[in-house]
Write a protein that binds this DNA or RNA. Sequence first.
DNA 1: GTGGTCTAGACCACC
DNA 2: GTGGTCTAGACCACG
Lengths: 134, 134, 134, 134
Amino acid sequence: MEFRIESSSRVPIYRQLMAQVREAVARGRLKADERLPSVRDLSRQLVINPNTVARVYTELEREGILNTRPGLGVFVAQPKSDLTKRARKERLLCLIDELLTETVHLGFTAEELLAMISERLQRFQFPQAVGSES
Amino acid sequence: MEFRIESSSRVPIYRQLMAQVREAVARGRLKADERLPSVRDLSRQLVINPNTVARVYTELEREGILNTRPGLGVFVAQPKSDLTKRARKERLLCLIDELLTETVHLGFTAEELLAMISERLQRFQFPQAVGSES
Amino acid sequence: MEFRIESSSRVPIYRQLMAQVREAVARGRLKADERLPSVRDLSRQLVINPNTVARVYTELEREGILNTRPGLGVFVAQPKSDLTKRARKERLLCLIDELLTETVHLGFTAEELLAMISERLQRFQFPQAVGSES
Amino acid sequence: MEFRIESSSRVPIYRQLMAQVREAVARGRLKADERLPSVRDLSRQLVINPNTVARVYTELEREGILNTRPGLGVFVAQPKSDLTKRARKERLLCLIDELLTETVHLGFTAEELLAMISERLQRFQFPQAVGSES
DNA sequence: GTGGTCTAGACCACC
DNA sequence: GTGGTCTAGACCACG
Protein backbone atom coordinates (compact mmCIF):
# COMPACT_ATOMS: atom_id res chain seq x y z
CA MET A 1 0.00 0.00 0.00
CA GLU A 2 1.11 3.47 -0.83
CA PHE A 3 -0.33 6.59 0.67
CA ARG A 4 -0.13 10.12 -0.59
CA ILE A 5 -0.48 13.43 1.24
CA GLU A 6 -1.69 16.45 -0.69
CA SER A 7 -0.26 19.33 1.27
CA SER A 8 -2.16 21.86 -0.83
CA SER A 9 -5.45 20.44 0.34
CA ARG A 10 -7.35 22.15 3.12
CA VAL A 11 -8.16 18.75 4.59
CA PRO A 12 -5.94 18.05 7.61
CA ILE A 13 -3.19 15.53 6.98
CA TYR A 14 -4.52 13.05 9.52
CA ARG A 15 -7.93 13.16 7.84
CA GLN A 16 -6.42 12.51 4.44
CA LEU A 17 -4.55 9.50 5.74
CA MET A 18 -7.55 8.14 7.58
CA ALA A 19 -9.67 8.44 4.43
CA GLN A 20 -7.07 6.60 2.39
CA VAL A 21 -6.80 3.73 4.85
CA ARG A 22 -10.56 3.42 5.07
CA GLU A 23 -10.89 3.46 1.28
CA ALA A 24 -8.09 0.91 0.86
CA VAL A 25 -9.86 -1.45 3.25
CA ALA A 26 -13.21 -0.90 1.54
CA ARG A 27 -11.68 -1.66 -1.85
CA GLY A 28 -9.97 -4.79 -0.59
CA ARG A 29 -6.52 -3.45 -1.24
CA LEU A 30 -5.88 -3.92 2.46
CA LYS A 31 -7.17 -7.28 3.69
CA ALA A 32 -8.21 -8.31 7.20
CA ASP A 33 -5.21 -9.15 9.42
CA GLU A 34 -2.81 -7.46 7.04
CA ARG A 35 -0.15 -5.46 8.84
CA LEU A 36 0.25 -1.74 8.27
CA PRO A 37 3.61 0.04 8.26
CA SER A 38 4.86 1.11 11.67
CA VAL A 39 4.23 4.65 12.83
CA ARG A 40 7.90 5.51 12.43
CA ASP A 41 8.23 4.01 8.95
CA LEU A 42 5.11 5.64 7.60
CA SER A 43 5.94 9.02 9.08
CA ARG A 44 9.40 8.90 7.48
CA GLN A 45 7.97 7.77 4.16
CA LEU A 46 5.38 10.57 4.02
CA VAL A 47 7.64 13.14 5.67
CA ILE A 48 5.09 14.00 8.31
CA ASN A 49 5.08 14.09 12.07
CA PRO A 50 4.98 10.64 13.78
CA ASN A 51 2.33 12.00 16.13
CA THR A 52 0.10 12.52 13.12
CA VAL A 53 0.43 8.91 11.98
CA ALA A 54 -0.12 7.69 15.52
CA ARG A 55 -3.29 9.71 15.71
CA VAL A 56 -4.57 8.14 12.49
CA TYR A 57 -4.02 4.63 13.81
CA THR A 58 -5.62 5.47 17.15
CA GLU A 59 -8.75 6.95 15.62
CA LEU A 60 -9.15 4.10 13.14
CA GLU A 61 -8.84 1.67 16.00
CA ARG A 62 -11.62 3.49 17.82
CA GLU A 63 -13.70 3.09 14.64
CA GLY A 64 -13.01 -0.63 14.67
CA ILE A 65 -11.17 -0.62 11.35
CA LEU A 66 -7.69 -1.32 12.73
CA ASN A 67 -6.42 -2.97 15.87
CA THR A 68 -3.10 -2.74 17.58
CA ARG A 69 -1.28 -5.83 18.84
CA PRO A 70 1.24 -4.40 21.28
CA GLY A 71 4.77 -5.21 20.27
CA LEU A 72 3.68 -6.61 16.91
CA GLY A 73 2.23 -3.66 15.05
CA VAL A 74 -1.05 -2.38 13.69
CA PHE A 75 -3.37 -4.67 11.71
CA VAL A 76 -6.56 -4.45 9.69
CA ALA A 77 -9.43 -5.64 11.90
CA GLN A 78 -12.07 -8.18 10.98
CA PRO A 79 -15.05 -6.31 9.54
CA LYS A 80 -17.62 -5.76 12.27
CA SER A 81 -19.95 -2.98 13.07
CA ASP A 82 -21.37 -2.51 16.52
CA LEU A 83 -23.96 -0.04 15.38
CA THR A 84 -27.55 -1.16 15.05
CA LYS A 85 -28.89 -1.68 11.57
CA ARG A 86 -31.11 1.32 12.11
CA ALA A 87 -28.27 3.66 13.09
CA ARG A 88 -26.16 2.47 10.18
CA LYS A 89 -28.97 3.05 7.71
CA GLU A 90 -29.58 6.52 9.08
CA ARG A 91 -25.94 7.40 8.67
CA LEU A 92 -25.87 6.14 5.10
CA LEU A 93 -29.03 8.01 4.14
CA CYS A 94 -27.47 11.17 5.46
CA LEU A 95 -24.44 10.70 3.25
CA ILE A 96 -26.67 9.93 0.28
CA ASP A 97 -28.56 13.18 0.79
CA GLU A 98 -25.31 15.11 0.87
CA LEU A 99 -24.24 13.48 -2.38
CA LEU A 100 -27.55 14.22 -4.06
CA THR A 101 -27.45 17.83 -2.90
CA GLU A 102 -24.03 18.30 -4.39
CA THR A 103 -25.02 16.51 -7.59
CA VAL A 104 -27.86 18.95 -8.17
CA HIS A 105 -25.69 21.97 -7.47
CA LEU A 106 -23.04 20.72 -9.86
CA GLY A 107 -25.69 20.48 -12.53
CA PHE A 108 -25.64 16.74 -13.18
CA THR A 109 -28.76 14.72 -13.92
CA ALA A 110 -29.83 11.67 -11.94
CA GLU A 111 -28.87 9.47 -14.89
CA GLU A 112 -25.36 10.91 -15.05
CA LEU A 113 -24.95 10.35 -11.32
CA LEU A 114 -26.10 6.73 -11.49
CA ALA A 115 -23.78 6.06 -14.41
CA MET A 116 -20.80 7.37 -12.48
CA ILE A 117 -21.75 5.33 -9.44
CA SER A 118 -22.03 2.09 -11.42
CA GLU A 119 -18.64 2.73 -12.91
CA ARG A 120 -17.06 3.22 -9.49
CA LEU A 121 -18.91 0.39 -7.78
CA GLN A 122 -16.61 -2.15 -9.41
CA ARG A 123 -13.61 -0.86 -7.57
CA PHE A 124 -15.02 -1.75 -4.18
CA GLN A 125 -15.32 -5.03 -2.31
CA PHE A 126 -18.85 -5.24 -1.07
CA PRO A 127 -19.87 -7.80 1.58
CA GLN A 128 -21.94 -10.81 0.53
CA ALA A 129 -25.68 -10.27 0.48
CA VAL A 130 -26.40 -12.68 3.33
CA GLY A 131 -26.55 -11.90 7.04
CA SER A 132 -26.11 -8.16 6.94
CA GLU A 133 -28.13 -8.17 10.11
CA SER A 134 -26.24 -6.91 13.14
CA MET B 1 -38.13 27.26 5.76
CA GLU B 2 -37.01 26.20 9.18
CA PHE B 3 -33.42 25.60 10.17
CA ARG B 4 -32.03 23.75 13.15
CA ILE B 5 -28.65 23.96 14.84
CA GLU B 6 -27.28 21.02 16.74
CA SER B 7 -24.91 22.68 19.16
CA SER B 8 -23.70 19.34 20.47
CA SER B 9 -22.34 18.51 17.01
CA ARG B 10 -18.67 18.95 16.31
CA VAL B 11 -19.55 20.40 12.92
CA PRO B 12 -19.24 24.21 13.06
CA ILE B 13 -22.54 26.03 13.22
CA TYR B 14 -21.96 27.86 9.96
CA ARG B 15 -21.30 24.54 8.20
CA GLN B 16 -24.50 23.04 9.54
CA LEU B 17 -26.50 26.01 8.33
CA MET B 18 -24.79 26.05 4.93
CA ALA B 19 -25.57 22.37 4.44
CA GLN B 20 -29.21 22.91 5.29
CA VAL B 21 -29.61 25.78 2.87
CA ARG B 22 -27.84 23.92 0.09
CA GLU B 23 -30.04 20.87 0.59
CA ALA B 24 -33.21 22.96 0.73
CA VAL B 25 -32.31 24.54 -2.61
CA ALA B 26 -31.38 21.20 -4.17
CA ARG B 27 -34.69 19.74 -3.06
CA GLY B 28 -36.67 22.66 -4.37
CA ARG B 29 -37.94 23.62 -0.94
CA LEU B 30 -36.29 26.97 -1.55
CA LYS B 31 -37.04 28.23 -5.05
CA ALA B 32 -35.02 30.63 -7.18
CA ASP B 33 -35.62 34.28 -6.21
CA GLU B 34 -37.18 33.28 -2.91
CA ARG B 35 -36.10 35.48 -0.03
CA LEU B 36 -34.32 34.06 3.00
CA PRO B 37 -34.79 35.41 6.52
CA SER B 38 -32.72 38.48 7.28
CA VAL B 39 -29.41 38.04 9.04
CA ARG B 40 -30.77 39.55 12.22
CA ASP B 41 -34.01 37.55 12.22
CA LEU B 42 -32.34 34.23 11.63
CA SER B 43 -29.68 34.89 14.23
CA ARG B 44 -32.35 35.72 16.79
CA GLN B 45 -34.40 32.68 15.85
CA LEU B 46 -31.45 30.29 16.13
CA VAL B 47 -29.90 32.16 19.06
CA ILE B 48 -26.55 32.49 17.35
CA ASN B 49 -24.39 35.47 16.47
CA PRO B 50 -25.48 37.58 13.48
CA ASN B 51 -21.94 37.37 12.11
CA THR B 52 -22.26 33.61 11.91
CA VAL B 53 -25.42 33.88 9.81
CA ALA B 54 -23.82 36.57 7.67
CA ARG B 55 -20.92 34.27 7.02
CA VAL B 56 -23.24 31.51 5.84
CA TYR B 57 -24.95 33.87 3.40
CA THR B 58 -21.66 35.28 2.17
CA GLU B 59 -20.12 31.89 1.50
CA LEU B 60 -23.20 30.57 -0.23
CA GLU B 61 -23.21 33.65 -2.40
CA ARG B 62 -19.65 32.92 -3.39
CA GLU B 63 -20.76 29.43 -4.31
CA GLY B 64 -23.38 30.96 -6.54
CA ILE B 65 -26.30 29.56 -4.57
CA LEU B 66 -27.54 32.81 -3.05
CA ASN B 67 -27.28 36.43 -3.96
CA THR B 68 -27.75 39.47 -1.82
CA ARG B 69 -29.41 42.68 -2.87
CA PRO B 70 -28.05 45.36 -0.59
CA GLY B 71 -30.78 46.85 1.50
CA LEU B 72 -33.34 44.30 0.35
CA GLY B 73 -32.19 40.98 1.69
CA VAL B 74 -30.75 37.67 0.58
CA PHE B 75 -32.30 35.61 -2.21
CA VAL B 76 -31.91 32.20 -3.83
CA ALA B 77 -29.90 32.65 -7.04
CA GLN B 78 -30.73 31.28 -10.47
CA PRO B 79 -28.83 28.00 -10.87
CA LYS B 80 -25.60 28.44 -12.82
CA SER B 81 -22.14 26.99 -12.58
CA ASP B 82 -19.03 28.52 -14.07
CA LEU B 83 -16.91 25.50 -13.26
CA THR B 84 -15.37 23.39 -15.97
CA LYS B 85 -17.21 20.16 -16.73
CA ARG B 86 -14.02 18.40 -15.86
CA ALA B 87 -13.65 20.03 -12.46
CA ARG B 88 -17.29 19.33 -11.65
CA LYS B 89 -16.99 15.68 -12.61
CA GLU B 90 -13.82 15.27 -10.60
CA ARG B 91 -15.53 16.67 -7.54
CA LEU B 92 -18.52 14.39 -7.91
CA LEU B 93 -16.40 11.26 -8.39
CA CYS B 94 -14.53 12.08 -5.24
CA LEU B 95 -17.77 12.29 -3.27
CA ILE B 96 -18.98 9.03 -4.81
CA ASP B 97 -15.84 7.24 -3.67
CA GLU B 98 -16.31 8.54 -0.16
CA LEU B 99 -19.88 7.28 -0.15
CA LEU B 100 -18.87 3.86 -1.44
CA THR B 101 -16.12 3.58 1.15
CA GLU B 102 -18.53 4.33 3.94
CA THR B 103 -21.13 1.98 2.50
CA VAL B 104 -18.71 -0.93 2.64
CA HIS B 105 -17.62 -0.11 6.18
CA LEU B 106 -21.23 0.07 7.30
CA GLY B 107 -21.71 -3.40 5.87
CA PHE B 108 -24.27 -2.64 3.16
CA THR B 109 -24.33 -4.37 -0.22
CA ALA B 110 -24.26 -2.53 -3.53
CA GLU B 111 -27.90 -3.44 -4.08
CA GLU B 112 -28.97 -2.01 -0.75
CA LEU B 113 -27.09 1.20 -1.53
CA LEU B 114 -28.68 1.58 -4.95
CA ALA B 115 -32.12 0.96 -3.48
CA MET B 116 -31.64 3.68 -0.90
CA ILE B 117 -30.39 6.09 -3.54
CA SER B 118 -33.39 5.50 -5.81
CA GLU B 119 -35.66 6.11 -2.89
CA ARG B 120 -33.99 9.41 -2.03
CA LEU B 121 -33.61 10.59 -5.61
CA GLN B 122 -37.26 11.54 -5.73
CA ARG B 123 -36.85 14.17 -3.07
CA PHE B 124 -34.49 16.23 -5.19
CA GLN B 125 -35.05 18.57 -8.09
CA PHE B 126 -32.63 17.54 -10.78
CA PRO B 127 -31.91 19.77 -13.78
CA GLN B 128 -33.29 18.87 -17.19
CA ALA B 129 -31.13 16.51 -19.23
CA VAL B 130 -30.41 19.12 -21.95
CA GLY B 131 -27.32 21.30 -22.39
CA SER B 132 -25.23 20.23 -19.44
CA GLU B 133 -22.20 21.37 -21.41
CA SER B 134 -19.99 24.13 -19.90
CA MET C 1 7.07 41.20 0.40
CA GLU C 2 5.85 44.36 2.02
CA PHE C 3 2.26 45.46 2.19
CA ARG C 4 0.80 48.86 2.90
CA ILE C 5 -2.62 49.91 4.14
CA GLU C 6 -4.03 53.31 3.32
CA SER C 7 -6.47 53.86 6.12
CA SER C 8 -7.68 57.10 4.58
CA SER C 9 -8.95 55.18 1.56
CA ARG C 10 -12.62 54.30 1.32
CA VAL C 11 -11.64 50.87 0.05
CA PRO C 12 -11.98 48.32 2.88
CA ILE C 13 -8.70 47.21 4.37
CA TYR C 14 -9.21 43.59 3.43
CA ARG C 15 -9.80 44.62 -0.19
CA GLN C 16 -6.62 46.66 -0.28
CA LEU C 17 -4.62 43.75 1.06
CA MET C 18 -6.25 41.26 -1.30
CA ALA C 19 -5.46 43.47 -4.28
CA GLN C 20 -1.83 43.77 -3.23
CA VAL C 21 -1.40 40.03 -2.82
CA ARG C 22 -3.08 39.31 -6.13
CA GLU C 23 -0.89 41.83 -7.92
CA ALA C 24 2.27 40.52 -6.26
CA VAL C 25 1.45 37.01 -7.46
CA ALA C 26 0.58 38.20 -10.96
CA ARG C 27 3.88 40.06 -11.18
CA GLY C 28 5.86 37.10 -9.94
CA ARG C 29 7.03 38.91 -6.83
CA LEU C 30 5.39 36.12 -4.89
CA LYS C 31 6.21 32.74 -6.39
CA ALA C 32 4.24 29.50 -6.17
CA ASP C 33 4.79 27.69 -2.85
CA GLU C 34 6.27 30.76 -1.25
CA ARG C 35 5.11 31.28 2.30
CA LEU C 36 3.28 34.43 3.34
CA PRO C 37 3.65 36.02 6.76
CA SER C 38 1.52 34.42 9.47
CA VAL C 39 -1.82 35.98 10.28
CA ARG C 40 -0.54 37.23 13.62
CA ASP C 41 2.71 38.64 12.25
CA LEU C 42 1.09 40.51 9.41
CA SER C 43 -1.64 41.89 11.64
CA ARG C 44 0.97 43.19 14.06
CA GLN C 45 3.05 44.64 11.25
CA LEU C 46 0.11 46.47 9.65
CA VAL C 47 -1.51 47.29 12.99
CA ILE C 48 -4.82 45.77 11.98
CA ASN C 49 -6.99 43.06 13.47
CA PRO C 50 -5.85 39.44 12.95
CA ASN C 51 -9.35 38.55 11.78
CA THR C 52 -8.99 41.00 8.92
CA VAL C 53 -5.79 39.35 7.73
CA ALA C 54 -7.35 35.93 8.17
CA ARG C 55 -10.22 37.01 5.99
CA VAL C 56 -7.86 38.10 3.22
CA TYR C 57 -6.11 34.74 3.27
CA THR C 58 -9.37 32.83 3.38
CA GLU C 59 -10.88 34.68 0.44
CA LEU C 60 -7.75 34.38 -1.66
CA GLU C 61 -7.71 30.67 -0.93
CA ARG C 62 -11.24 30.43 -2.22
CA GLU C 63 -10.09 32.22 -5.37
CA GLY C 64 -7.41 29.58 -5.75
CA ILE C 65 -4.53 32.02 -5.32
CA LEU C 66 -3.35 30.87 -1.90
CA ASN C 67 -3.63 27.69 0.07
CA THR C 68 -3.23 27.14 3.75
CA ARG C 69 -1.59 24.17 5.37
CA PRO C 70 -3.04 23.94 8.86
CA GLY C 71 -0.40 24.43 11.46
CA LEU C 72 2.23 25.40 8.89
CA GLY C 73 1.08 28.64 7.39
CA VAL C 74 -0.28 30.14 4.18
CA PHE C 75 1.37 29.60 0.81
CA VAL C 76 1.05 30.78 -2.79
CA ALA C 77 -0.88 28.14 -4.75
CA GLN C 78 0.03 26.62 -8.08
CA PRO C 79 -1.82 28.58 -10.78
CA LYS C 80 -5.01 26.84 -11.87
CA SER C 81 -8.47 27.98 -12.84
CA ASP C 82 -11.56 25.81 -12.78
CA LEU C 83 -13.66 28.45 -14.48
CA THR C 84 -15.11 27.93 -17.92
CA LYS C 85 -13.22 29.64 -20.73
CA ARG C 86 -16.44 31.44 -21.48
CA ALA C 87 -16.90 32.75 -17.95
CA ARG C 88 -13.30 33.88 -17.82
CA LYS C 89 -13.54 35.72 -21.14
CA GLU C 90 -16.76 37.41 -20.12
CA ARG C 91 -15.16 38.65 -16.94
CA LEU C 92 -12.14 40.02 -18.77
CA LEU C 93 -14.21 41.81 -21.41
CA CYS C 94 -16.18 43.48 -18.68
CA LEU C 95 -13.00 44.80 -17.10
CA ILE C 96 -11.73 45.99 -20.48
CA ASP C 97 -14.91 47.98 -21.06
CA GLU C 98 -14.53 49.62 -17.68
CA LEU C 99 -10.97 50.56 -18.50
CA LEU C 100 -11.92 51.99 -21.88
CA THR C 101 -14.76 54.00 -20.36
CA GLU C 102 -12.45 55.52 -17.82
CA THR C 103 -9.77 56.17 -20.45
CA VAL C 104 -12.18 58.24 -22.52
CA HIS C 105 -13.38 60.21 -19.51
CA LEU C 106 -9.83 60.97 -18.51
CA GLY C 107 -9.26 62.35 -22.00
CA PHE C 108 -6.64 59.92 -23.26
CA THR C 109 -6.47 58.68 -26.85
CA ALA C 110 -6.43 55.02 -27.80
CA GLU C 111 -2.77 55.34 -28.76
CA GLU C 112 -1.82 56.75 -25.38
CA LEU C 113 -3.67 53.94 -23.67
CA LEU C 114 -1.99 51.23 -25.72
CA ALA C 115 1.40 52.77 -25.07
CA MET C 116 0.84 52.73 -21.32
CA ILE C 117 -0.37 49.15 -21.45
CA SER C 118 2.70 47.96 -23.36
CA GLU C 119 4.90 49.69 -20.84
CA ARG C 120 3.19 47.98 -17.91
CA LEU C 121 2.90 44.56 -19.56
CA GLN C 122 6.55 43.91 -18.87
CA ARG C 123 6.07 43.98 -15.14
CA PHE C 124 3.75 40.99 -15.20
CA GLN C 125 4.39 37.28 -15.49
CA PHE C 126 2.05 36.02 -18.18
CA PRO C 127 1.41 32.30 -18.65
CA GLN C 128 2.89 30.48 -21.62
CA ALA C 129 0.82 30.63 -24.80
CA VAL C 130 0.17 26.85 -24.83
CA GLY C 131 -2.92 24.95 -23.59
CA SER C 132 -5.05 27.84 -22.45
CA GLU C 133 -8.06 25.58 -22.95
CA SER C 134 -10.18 24.67 -19.89
CA MET D 1 -30.80 55.31 -24.17
CA GLU D 2 -31.91 52.30 -22.25
CA PHE D 3 -30.52 51.26 -18.91
CA ARG D 4 -30.70 47.90 -17.22
CA ILE D 5 -30.40 46.96 -13.56
CA GLU D 6 -29.16 43.52 -12.66
CA SER D 7 -30.65 42.94 -9.26
CA SER D 8 -28.71 39.72 -8.83
CA SER D 9 -25.42 41.60 -8.98
CA ARG D 10 -23.65 42.48 -5.78
CA VAL D 11 -22.85 45.89 -7.21
CA PRO D 12 -25.18 48.51 -5.68
CA ILE D 13 -27.89 49.72 -8.01
CA TYR D 14 -26.62 53.29 -8.04
CA ARG D 15 -23.15 52.08 -9.04
CA GLN D 16 -24.58 50.03 -11.87
CA LEU D 17 -26.48 53.00 -13.21
CA MET D 18 -23.51 55.34 -12.84
CA ALA D 19 -21.33 52.90 -14.74
CA GLN D 20 -23.85 52.64 -17.54
CA VAL D 21 -24.18 56.38 -17.95
CA ARG D 22 -20.44 56.84 -17.92
CA GLU D 23 -19.99 54.08 -20.50
CA ALA D 24 -22.77 55.48 -22.69
CA VAL D 25 -21.06 58.86 -22.72
CA ALA D 26 -17.66 57.31 -23.42
CA ARG D 27 -19.09 55.36 -26.34
CA GLY D 28 -20.81 58.39 -27.78
CA ARG D 29 -24.25 56.93 -27.33
CA LEU D 30 -25.00 59.92 -25.14
CA LYS D 31 -23.72 63.16 -26.69
CA ALA D 32 -22.81 66.42 -25.01
CA ASP D 33 -25.88 68.55 -24.16
CA GLU D 34 -28.19 65.61 -24.64
CA ARG D 35 -30.94 65.47 -22.04
CA LEU D 36 -31.33 62.48 -19.73
CA PRO D 37 -34.69 61.18 -18.51
CA SER D 38 -36.07 62.88 -15.44
CA VAL D 39 -35.47 61.30 -12.06
CA ARG D 40 -39.14 60.31 -11.78
CA ASP D 41 -39.35 58.82 -15.27
CA LEU D 42 -36.19 56.81 -14.95
CA SER D 43 -37.07 55.53 -11.50
CA ARG D 44 -40.46 54.37 -12.76
CA GLN D 45 -38.93 52.78 -15.83
CA LEU D 46 -36.35 50.82 -13.84
CA VAL D 47 -38.67 50.21 -10.90
CA ILE D 48 -36.20 51.57 -8.40
CA ASN D 49 -36.33 54.22 -5.73
CA PRO D 50 -36.26 57.82 -7.07
CA ASN D 51 -33.69 58.67 -4.41
CA THR D 52 -31.37 56.18 -6.04
CA VAL D 53 -31.65 57.83 -9.45
CA ALA D 54 -31.20 61.25 -7.88
CA ARG D 55 -28.04 60.06 -6.22
CA VAL D 56 -26.67 58.83 -9.54
CA TYR D 57 -27.25 62.20 -11.19
CA THR D 58 -25.76 64.08 -8.25
CA GLU D 59 -22.60 62.02 -8.15
CA LEU D 60 -22.10 62.17 -11.91
CA GLU D 61 -22.50 65.93 -11.71
CA ARG D 62 -19.78 66.04 -9.09
CA GLU D 63 -17.61 64.07 -11.50
CA GLY D 64 -18.27 66.64 -14.19
CA ILE D 65 -20.01 64.19 -16.51
CA LEU D 66 -23.52 65.60 -16.15
CA ASN D 67 -24.89 68.96 -15.22
CA THR D 68 -28.28 70.00 -13.95
CA ARG D 69 -30.13 72.99 -15.36
CA PRO D 70 -32.74 73.73 -12.71
CA GLY D 71 -36.23 73.47 -14.07
CA LEU D 72 -35.03 72.03 -17.40
CA GLY D 73 -33.51 68.69 -16.50
CA VAL D 74 -30.20 66.89 -16.44
CA PHE D 75 -27.81 67.07 -19.39
CA VAL D 76 -24.55 65.52 -20.54
CA ALA D 77 -21.76 67.99 -19.79
CA GLN D 78 -19.08 69.16 -22.19
CA PRO D 79 -16.05 66.91 -21.74
CA LYS D 80 -13.58 68.53 -19.38
CA SER D 81 -11.28 67.21 -16.74
CA ASP D 82 -9.96 69.41 -13.99
CA LEU D 83 -7.37 66.89 -12.92
CA THR D 84 -3.77 67.51 -13.85
CA LYS D 85 -2.28 65.38 -16.61
CA ARG D 86 -0.11 63.75 -14.02
CA ALA D 87 -2.97 62.77 -11.72
CA ARG D 88 -4.99 61.47 -14.65
CA LYS D 89 -2.11 59.34 -15.87
CA GLU D 90 -1.56 57.92 -12.42
CA ARG D 91 -5.19 56.94 -12.14
CA LEU D 92 -5.14 55.25 -15.54
CA LEU D 93 -1.96 53.32 -14.78
CA CYS D 94 -3.56 52.05 -11.61
CA LEU D 95 -6.53 50.72 -13.56
CA ILE D 96 -4.20 49.16 -16.12
CA ASP D 97 -2.34 47.30 -13.38
CA GLU D 98 -5.59 45.97 -12.01
CA LEU D 99 -6.56 44.75 -15.46
CA LEU D 100 -3.21 43.07 -16.01
CA THR D 101 -3.35 41.40 -12.61
CA GLU D 102 -6.74 39.94 -13.37
CA THR D 103 -5.66 38.91 -16.86
CA VAL D 104 -2.82 36.84 -15.45
CA HIS D 105 -5.01 35.21 -12.83
CA LEU D 106 -7.61 34.32 -15.45
CA GLY D 107 -4.87 32.60 -17.41
CA PHE D 108 -4.87 34.74 -20.55
CA THR D 109 -1.72 35.65 -22.45
CA ALA D 110 -0.69 39.21 -23.26
CA GLU D 111 -1.57 38.58 -26.91
CA GLU D 112 -5.07 37.42 -26.08
CA LEU D 113 -5.57 40.48 -23.91
CA LEU D 114 -4.41 42.89 -26.61
CA ALA D 115 -6.64 41.20 -29.17
CA MET D 116 -9.67 41.63 -26.96
CA ILE D 117 -8.80 45.26 -26.30
CA SER D 118 -8.45 46.09 -30.01
CA GLU D 119 -11.80 44.51 -30.66
CA ARG D 120 -13.48 46.60 -27.96
CA LEU D 121 -11.67 49.82 -28.78
CA GLN D 122 -13.90 50.38 -31.79
CA ARG D 123 -16.97 50.75 -29.67
CA PHE D 124 -15.65 53.82 -27.92
CA GLN D 125 -15.41 57.46 -28.98
CA PHE D 126 -11.89 58.57 -28.20
CA PRO D 127 -10.96 62.26 -28.17
CA GLN D 128 -8.83 63.68 -30.99
CA ALA D 129 -5.09 63.35 -30.52
CA VAL D 130 -4.48 67.12 -30.24
CA GLY D 131 -4.37 69.22 -27.10
CA SER D 132 -4.88 66.55 -24.50
CA GLU D 133 -2.91 68.83 -22.20
CA SER D 134 -4.89 70.09 -19.24
C1' DG E 1 3.72 27.86 16.89
C1' DT E 2 -0.05 27.84 13.01
C1' DG E 3 -5.01 28.90 11.20
C1' DG E 4 -10.36 28.31 12.14
C1' DT E 5 -14.56 29.30 14.75
C1' DC E 6 -17.56 32.01 17.42
C1' DT E 7 -19.17 35.84 20.12
C1' DA E 8 -20.04 40.81 21.11
C1' DG E 9 -20.63 45.14 19.71
C1' DA E 10 -19.53 49.40 16.84
C1' DC E 11 -20.01 51.93 12.57
C1' DC E 12 -21.10 52.47 7.65
C1' DA E 13 -23.40 51.91 3.03
C1' DC E 14 -27.64 50.80 0.64
C1' DC E 15 -32.54 51.30 -0.43
C1' DG F 1 -35.02 48.40 7.66
C1' DT F 2 -31.19 45.62 5.03
C1' DG F 3 -26.20 43.61 4.61
C1' DG F 4 -20.88 44.75 4.98
C1' DT F 5 -16.74 45.97 7.58
C1' DC F 6 -13.80 46.09 11.46
C1' DT F 7 -12.28 45.38 16.13
C1' DA F 8 -11.48 42.66 20.40
C1' DG F 9 -10.89 38.68 22.59
C1' DA F 10 -11.98 33.65 23.69
C1' DC F 11 -11.44 28.87 22.57
C1' DC F 12 -10.32 24.91 19.59
C1' DA F 13 -7.93 22.00 15.99
C1' DC F 14 -3.58 21.10 13.58
C1' DG F 15 1.29 19.67 13.34
